[in-house]
Amino acid sequence: MLDRLARGIEALLFASERPLSLQDLCDLTGSGPESAATALEAVRSSLEEQGHSILLVELAGGWRLVTDPDLGDLVSQLFEERRPGRLSRAAIETLAVIAYNQPCTKAAVEAIRGVDCDSAIRSLLERDLVRICGRQETPGRPLTYATTGQFLSYFGLSDIEHLPRKREIDELLSSGPVPEQPGDLFEQSG
């Protein structure tokens, strides 16, 4: 049997429509971070030990109750037709470049991928996996892109530091500038 705090935290996580950080949980329950962390662990292990199909996971900067991915085929039947499909290869490559380089411009993505990334970026924006986060103060003031919380949730990441191959790619990127791609003369502006 979970204690009062653990039950409260479980209820909050069940009802919340966004991941709740440890700080959120402390604020909501009025408890200290240590007892909240202990309660979280109690919820997690009780779900696991009793073989529940619900898991407590750390996603996008907070804690979240999700159904076990192993049951995806079963559960996804509920959302057939309205669940977005898997990302195209162009989209996922573009997303990877943005994720490790953010904030980053379209030109920077194209310099790395060597192809036009217009439609890929557009589809990522539509799926709320990247967002426009500003403009670079260089000629033309190009828009810059960054990933969203939805991006972290979608890939089951707790935060951006947990990207796969993070260190390897950071080293590569810091070893020199991204090579300039000769511009496509016929590229449409905008």
């Binding site: 996580l13 069940f14 009802a15 919340s16 429509e17 966004r18 619900i54 898991l55 996971v57 996603l59 979240r64 109750l65 999700v66 159904t67 076990d68 991915p69 192993d70 049951l71 995806g72 085929d73 559960v75 996804s76 959302f79 669940r83 898997r86 990302l87 996922i92 949730s153 979608y154 890939f155 089951g156 990441l157 796969p164």
Partner: peptide, 13 residues
């Protein structure tokens, strides 16, 4: 990651 996590359905929002 996508293959795994697109099959995890959060509650509820």
């Amino acid at each position: 990651n996508e293959s795994v996590w697109r099959n995890a359905f959060p509650a509820p929002g």
